[in-house]
Protein backbone atom coordinates (compact mmCIF):
# COMPACT_ATOMS: atom_id res chain seq x y z
CA UNK A 1 0.00 0.00 0.00
CA UNK A 2 1.40 3.40 -0.94
CA UNK A 3 1.27 6.53 1.21
CA UNK A 4 -1.38 8.11 -0.98
CA UNK A 5 -3.79 5.23 -0.39
CA UNK A 6 -3.40 5.53 3.37
CA UNK A 7 -4.13 9.26 3.35
CA UNK A 8 -7.17 9.03 1.06
CA UNK A 9 -10.52 9.23 2.88
CA UNK A 10 -12.24 5.88 3.03
CA UNK A 11 -15.29 5.26 0.83
CA UNK A 12 -18.48 5.90 2.86
CA UNK A 13 -20.75 2.89 3.38
CA UNK A 14 -24.07 2.33 1.58
CA UNK A 15 -26.18 4.30 4.06
CA UNK A 16 -24.76 7.50 2.56
CA UNK A 17 -25.55 9.09 -0.75
CA UNK A 18 -24.41 12.17 -2.62
CA UNK A 19 -27.15 14.76 -2.84
CA UNK A 20 -26.48 18.02 -4.74
CA UNK A 21 -22.78 17.52 -4.19
CA UNK A 22 -23.02 16.95 -0.44
CA UNK A 23 -22.66 13.69 1.49
CA UNK A 24 -25.99 12.92 3.22
CA UNK A 25 -27.29 9.90 5.11
CA UNK A 26 -30.07 8.26 3.09
CA UNK A 27 -32.34 8.21 6.15
CA UNK A 28 -31.92 11.97 6.70
CA UNK A 29 -32.85 12.53 3.08
CA UNK A 30 -36.07 10.54 3.27
CA UNK A 31 -36.99 12.19 6.59
CA UNK A 32 -36.44 15.58 4.98
CA UNK A 33 -38.64 14.59 2.03
CA UNK A 34 -41.47 13.56 4.34
CA UNK A 35 -41.31 16.76 6.35
CA UNK A 36 -41.46 18.80 3.15
CA UNK A 37 -44.46 16.94 1.77
CA UNK A 38 -46.58 16.43 4.90
CA UNK A 39 -47.88 20.02 5.53
CA UNK A 40 -49.34 20.24 2.04
CA UNK A 41 -50.67 16.73 2.29
CA UNK A 42 -52.33 17.40 5.65
CA UNK A 43 -53.78 20.63 4.37
CA UNK A 44 -55.49 19.04 1.40
CA UNK A 45 -56.57 16.10 3.54
CA UNK A 46 -58.29 18.37 6.06
CA UNK A 47 -59.73 20.98 3.79
CA UNK A 48 -60.37 19.04 0.59
CA UNK A 49 -60.47 15.26 0.97
CA UNK A 50 -62.45 15.06 4.24
CA UNK A 51 -65.12 17.65 3.20
CA UNK A 52 -65.53 15.87 -0.13
CA UNK A 53 -65.99 12.54 1.60
CA UNK A 54 -68.53 14.17 3.97
CA UNK A 55 -70.38 15.54 0.95
CA UNK A 56 -70.37 12.09 -0.60
CA UNK A 57 -71.85 10.55 2.57
CA UNK A 58 -74.43 13.32 3.05
CA UNK A 59 -75.66 12.92 -0.53
CA UNK A 60 -77.05 9.49 0.43
CA UNK A 61 -78.85 10.66 3.61
CA UNK A 62 -82.47 11.85 4.01
CA UNK A 63 -83.76 15.37 4.65
CA UNK A 64 -85.68 15.60 7.93
CA UNK A 65 -88.94 17.54 8.21
CA UNK A 66 -87.15 20.60 9.59
CA UNK A 67 -84.26 20.48 7.13
CA UNK A 68 -81.98 18.45 9.34
CA UNK A 69 -79.96 15.51 8.08
CA UNK A 70 -81.32 12.09 9.01
CA UNK A 71 -78.91 9.21 8.76
CA UNK A 72 -81.20 6.93 6.80
CA UNK A 73 -79.28 6.02 3.67
CA UNK A 74 -81.22 6.07 0.42
CA UNK A 75 -80.91 6.52 -3.38
CA UNK A 76 -83.78 9.05 -3.32
CA UNK A 77 -81.57 12.13 -3.75
CA UNK A 78 -80.00 10.79 -6.90
CA UNK A 79 -83.44 9.78 -8.22
CA UNK A 80 -84.80 13.23 -7.46
CA UNK A 81 -81.81 14.72 -9.16
CA UNK A 82 -82.50 12.66 -12.27
CA UNK A 83 -86.00 14.16 -12.31
CA UNK A 84 -88.16 11.62 -10.43
CA UNK A 85 -90.04 13.88 -7.97
CA UNK A 86 -93.34 13.66 -6.06
CA UNK A 87 -95.29 14.50 -9.18
CA UNK A 88 -93.63 12.06 -11.58
CA UNK A 89 -90.65 12.66 -13.90
CA UNK A 90 -89.68 16.12 -15.04
CA UNK A 91 -86.76 17.22 -17.18
CA UNK A 92 -86.08 20.35 -15.10
CA UNK A 93 -82.95 19.19 -13.30
CA UNK A 94 -81.37 17.64 -16.38
CA UNK A 95 -82.16 20.83 -18.30
CA UNK A 96 -80.40 22.82 -15.60
CA UNK A 97 -77.33 20.60 -15.82
CA UNK A 98 -77.38 20.82 -19.61
CA UNK A 99 -77.77 24.60 -19.48
CA UNK A 100 -74.86 24.88 -17.03
CA UNK A 101 -72.61 22.94 -19.37
CA UNK A 102 -73.80 25.08 -22.26
CA UNK A 103 -73.15 28.35 -20.43
CA UNK A 104 -69.69 27.19 -19.32
CA UNK A 105 -68.70 26.00 -22.78
CA UNK A 106 -70.04 29.05 -24.62
CA UNK A 107 -68.44 31.41 -22.07
CA UNK A 108 -65.10 29.65 -22.47
CA UNK A 109 -65.39 29.72 -26.25
CA UNK A 110 -66.21 33.45 -26.28
CA UNK A 111 -63.30 34.12 -23.91
CA UNK A 112 -60.89 32.21 -26.17
CA UNK A 113 -62.09 34.00 -29.30
CA UNK A 114 -61.71 37.39 -27.59
CA UNK A 115 -58.42 36.51 -25.91
CA UNK A 116 -56.40 35.72 -29.03
CA UNK A 117 -56.51 39.24 -30.48
CA UNK A 118 -56.11 40.63 -26.96
CA UNK A 119 -53.03 38.49 -26.26
CA UNK A 120 -51.40 39.50 -29.56
CA UNK A 121 -52.23 43.13 -28.87
CA UNK A 122 -50.64 42.96 -25.40
CA UNK A 123 -47.56 41.11 -26.62
CA UNK A 124 -46.99 43.63 -29.39
CA UNK A 125 -47.04 46.68 -27.06
CA UNK A 126 -43.66 48.22 -26.23
CA UNK A 127 -42.45 47.29 -22.74
CA UNK A 128 -43.43 50.60 -21.18
CA UNK A 129 -47.08 50.74 -22.17
CA UNK A 130 -47.53 46.98 -21.82
CA UNK A 131 -47.62 47.27 -18.02
CA UNK A 132 -50.40 49.86 -18.34
CA UNK A 133 -52.46 47.61 -20.61
CA UNK A 134 -51.95 44.61 -18.32
CA UNK A 135 -53.05 46.68 -15.34
CA UNK A 136 -56.16 47.79 -17.22
CA UNK A 137 -56.97 44.14 -17.87
CA UNK A 138 -56.44 43.27 -14.20
CA UNK A 139 -58.27 46.15 -12.48
CA UNK A 140 -61.76 44.61 -12.86
CA UNK A 141 -60.20 41.39 -11.67
CA UNK A 142 -59.30 42.99 -8.33
CA UNK A 143 -62.82 44.33 -7.80
CA UNK A 144 -65.37 42.33 -5.87
CA UNK A 145 -67.53 40.19 -8.15
CA UNK A 146 -70.83 41.42 -6.67
CA UNK A 147 -69.81 45.07 -7.05
CA UNK A 148 -68.73 44.41 -10.62
CA UNK A 149 -72.03 42.75 -11.40
CA UNK A 150 -73.93 45.68 -9.90
CA UNK A 151 -71.92 47.90 -12.21
CA UNK A 152 -73.37 45.91 -15.11
CA UNK A 153 -76.85 46.66 -13.71
CA UNK A 154 -76.06 50.31 -14.13
CA UNK A 155 -74.57 49.93 -17.60
CA UNK A 156 -77.49 47.81 -18.79
CA UNK A 157 -80.22 49.86 -17.10
CA UNK A 158 -82.99 51.51 -19.14
CA UNK A 159 -82.19 54.90 -20.68
CA UNK A 160 -78.46 54.37 -20.30
CA UNK A 161 -76.35 54.90 -23.44
CA UNK A 162 -76.25 51.22 -24.43
CA UNK A 163 -80.00 50.74 -23.96
CA UNK A 164 -80.71 54.01 -25.78
CA UNK A 165 -78.56 52.93 -28.70
CA UNK A 166 -80.31 49.57 -29.02
CA UNK A 167 -83.63 51.35 -28.59
CA UNK A 168 -82.82 53.71 -31.46
CA UNK A 169 -82.00 50.90 -33.82
CA UNK A 170 -85.21 49.19 -32.73
CA UNK A 171 -83.65 46.17 -31.04
CA UNK A 172 -85.51 46.70 -27.74
CA UNK A 173 -88.70 48.42 -26.60
CA UNK A 174 -88.33 52.01 -25.32
CA UNK A 175 -87.64 52.14 -21.60
CA UNK A 176 -86.77 48.46 -21.36
CA UNK A 177 -83.67 47.34 -19.45
CA UNK A 178 -81.12 44.97 -21.03
CA UNK A 179 -81.30 42.59 -18.11
CA UNK A 180 -82.31 40.00 -17.06
CA UNK A 181 -81.40 38.29 -20.31
CA UNK A 182 -79.12 35.65 -21.81
CA UNK A 183 -77.09 38.45 -23.34
CA UNK A 184 -76.52 39.99 -19.90
CA UNK A 185 -75.47 36.62 -18.44
CA UNK A 186 -72.85 36.08 -21.16
CA UNK A 187 -71.69 39.69 -20.85
CA UNK A 188 -71.14 39.21 -17.13
CA UNK A 189 -69.58 35.76 -17.51
CA UNK A 190 -67.17 36.78 -20.26
CA UNK A 191 -66.05 39.91 -18.45
CA UNK A 192 -65.53 37.79 -15.34
CA UNK A 193 -63.42 35.07 -17.00
CA UNK A 194 -61.64 36.95 -19.79
CA UNK A 195 -58.43 37.60 -17.78
CA UNK A 196 -58.22 33.90 -16.87
CA UNK A 197 -57.84 33.04 -20.56
CA UNK A 198 -56.12 36.21 -21.78
CA UNK A 199 -53.25 36.17 -19.28
CA UNK A 200 -51.99 32.58 -19.80
CA UNK A 201 -52.48 33.06 -23.53
CA UNK A 202 -50.49 36.29 -23.41
CA UNK A 203 -47.53 34.57 -21.74
CA UNK A 204 -47.65 31.87 -24.43
CA UNK A 205 -47.85 34.43 -27.25
CA UNK A 206 -44.96 36.39 -25.76
CA UNK A 207 -42.70 33.33 -25.95
CA UNK A 208 -43.81 32.41 -29.45
CA UNK A 209 -41.22 31.64 -32.13
CA UNK A 210 -42.32 33.81 -35.05
CA UNK A 211 -40.03 31.95 -37.45
CA UNK A 212 -42.71 29.23 -37.58
CA UNK A 213 -45.30 31.79 -38.68
CA UNK A 214 -42.91 33.03 -41.33
CA UNK A 215 -42.19 29.47 -42.43
CA UNK A 216 -45.91 28.77 -42.78
CA UNK A 217 -46.33 31.95 -44.85
CA UNK A 218 -43.30 31.04 -46.92
CA UNK A 219 -44.95 27.67 -47.61
CA UNK A 220 -48.01 29.33 -49.17
CA UNK A 221 -50.33 29.15 -46.14
CA UNK A 222 -53.42 31.28 -45.82
CA UNK A 223 -54.56 32.77 -42.51
CA UNK A 224 -56.31 29.70 -41.11
CA UNK A 225 -53.43 27.35 -41.93
CA UNK A 226 -50.93 29.73 -40.30
CA UNK A 227 -53.08 29.77 -37.16
CA UNK A 228 -53.66 26.02 -37.17
CA UNK A 229 -50.02 24.94 -37.66
CA UNK A 230 -47.84 27.84 -36.48
CA UNK A 231 -49.80 29.67 -33.76
CA UNK A 232 -52.16 27.13 -32.17
CA UNK A 233 -49.55 24.44 -31.35
CA UNK A 234 -47.27 27.06 -29.81
CA UNK A 235 -50.00 28.71 -27.71
CA UNK A 236 -51.61 25.38 -26.71
CA UNK A 237 -50.04 25.30 -23.20
CA UNK A 238 -51.41 28.75 -22.36
CA UNK A 239 -54.71 28.00 -24.01
CA UNK A 240 -55.29 24.77 -22.09
CA UNK A 241 -54.48 26.50 -18.78
CA UNK A 242 -56.92 29.28 -19.68
CA UNK A 243 -59.66 26.85 -20.69
CA UNK A 244 -59.26 24.86 -17.46
CA UNK A 245 -59.29 28.03 -15.36
CA UNK A 246 -62.51 29.14 -17.06
CA UNK A 247 -64.48 26.00 -17.84
CA UNK A 248 -64.28 24.52 -14.33
CA UNK A 249 -65.38 27.52 -12.25
CA UNK A 250 -67.85 28.67 -14.93
CA UNK A 251 -69.67 25.36 -14.52
CA UNK A 252 -70.40 26.17 -10.88
CA UNK A 253 -70.94 29.92 -11.22
CA UNK A 254 -74.13 31.21 -9.60
CA UNK A 255 -73.70 34.91 -8.70
CA UNK A 256 -73.60 36.28 -12.25
CA UNK A 257 -76.44 34.20 -13.77
CA UNK A 258 -78.52 34.83 -10.64
CA UNK A 259 -78.12 38.61 -10.80
CA UNK A 260 -78.04 39.19 -14.56
CA UNK A 261 -80.17 36.28 -15.74
CA UNK A 262 -83.07 36.56 -13.30
CA UNK A 263 -84.76 33.75 -11.41
CA UNK A 264 -85.67 31.83 -14.52
CA UNK A 265 -82.04 31.50 -15.61
CA UNK A 266 -81.29 28.60 -13.28
CA UNK A 267 -77.87 26.92 -13.42
CA UNK A 268 -76.56 24.04 -11.36
CA UNK A 269 -74.70 26.52 -9.16
CA UNK A 270 -77.94 28.35 -8.34
CA UNK A 271 -79.68 25.05 -7.69
CA UNK A 272 -76.99 23.94 -5.23
CA UNK A 273 -77.01 27.30 -3.49
CA UNK A 274 -80.79 27.04 -3.21
CA UNK A 275 -80.64 23.55 -1.65
CA UNK A 276 -78.09 24.57 0.95
CA UNK A 277 -79.84 27.94 1.47
CA UNK A 278 -83.56 28.58 1.23
CA UNK A 279 -84.71 24.99 0.63
CA UNK A 280 -82.61 23.61 3.48
CA UNK A 281 -82.22 20.32 1.64
CA UNK A 282 -78.58 19.46 2.32
CA UNK A 283 -78.72 15.88 1.05
CA UNK A 284 -80.01 16.95 -2.38
CA UNK A 285 -77.52 19.85 -2.43
CA UNK A 286 -74.70 17.41 -1.65
CA UNK A 287 -75.84 15.09 -4.44
CA UNK A 288 -75.94 18.00 -6.89
CA UNK A 289 -72.45 19.12 -5.80
CA UNK A 290 -71.23 15.61 -6.41
CA UNK A 291 -72.61 15.66 -9.95
CA UNK A 292 -70.97 19.03 -10.57
CA UNK A 293 -67.64 17.76 -9.26
CA UNK A 294 -67.86 14.64 -11.41
CA UNK A 295 -68.59 16.80 -14.46
CA UNK A 296 -65.60 19.07 -13.92
CA UNK A 297 -63.33 16.20 -12.93
CA UNK A 298 -64.18 14.26 -16.07
CA UNK A 299 -63.51 17.37 -18.18
CA UNK A 300 -60.13 17.76 -16.45
CA UNK A 301 -59.30 14.07 -16.85
CA UNK A 302 -60.15 14.22 -20.54
CA UNK A 303 -57.86 17.18 -21.15
CA UNK A 304 -55.14 15.60 -19.02
CA UNK A 305 -55.34 12.33 -20.94
CA UNK A 306 -55.07 14.20 -24.22
CA UNK A 307 -51.95 15.97 -22.99
CA UNK A 308 -50.37 12.70 -21.80
CA UNK A 309 -51.17 11.07 -25.14
CA UNK A 310 -49.55 13.99 -26.90
CA UNK A 311 -46.36 13.69 -24.83
CA UNK A 312 -46.16 9.93 -25.36
CA UNK A 313 -47.27 9.94 -29.00
Amino acid sequence: MTDEDKNAPSKPDDSYTVFHGGLVKKKTLSRRAHSFVSPGFLWSLMFLVIPCLALFVVSFTTRGDYGQIEWAFTWDNLKQLAGFGYFGWSADNLLIVWRSIQVAVVTTFLCVVLSYPLAFFLASRPDKSRTVWLTLLLIPFWTNLVIRTYAWFLALAPNMPLALLLQDIGAIDPGAPLYPSTFAVYLGMVSMYLPFVALPLYTAVEKMDWALVEAARDLYSGGWRVFRHAILPQTMPGLSVGITLTLVPAMGMFVVPDMLGGSRYMLIGNLIQQQFGTSRNWPLGAALSLVLMLLTLSALMASRRREINKVEG
Binding site: D209, A211, L212, E214, A215, D218, Y220, S221, A230, P233
Partner: peptide
Protein backbone atom coordinates in the same frame (compact mmCIF):
# COMPACT_ATOMS: atom_id res chain seq x y z
CA UNK B 1 -44.32 35.64 -48.98
CA UNK B 2 -47.13 33.14 -49.62
CA UNK B 3 -47.63 34.44 -53.16
CA UNK B 4 -43.99 34.32 -54.27
CA UNK B 5 -42.49 31.30 -56.04
CA UNK B 6 -39.65 31.54 -53.54
CA UNK B 7 -38.90 29.30 -50.56
CA UNK B 8 -36.61 29.77 -47.60
CA UNK B 9 -34.46 27.51 -45.45
CA UNK B 10 -34.57 29.28 -42.09
CA UNK B 11 -31.60 29.66 -39.80
CA UNK B 12 -33.48 27.92 -36.97
CA UNK B 13 -35.01 25.55 -39.58
CA UNK B 14 -38.51 26.47 -38.26
CA UNK B 15 -39.84 22.93 -38.67
CA UNK B 16 -43.36 22.38 -37.34
Amino acid sequence: ANERPVNTVFQSYALF
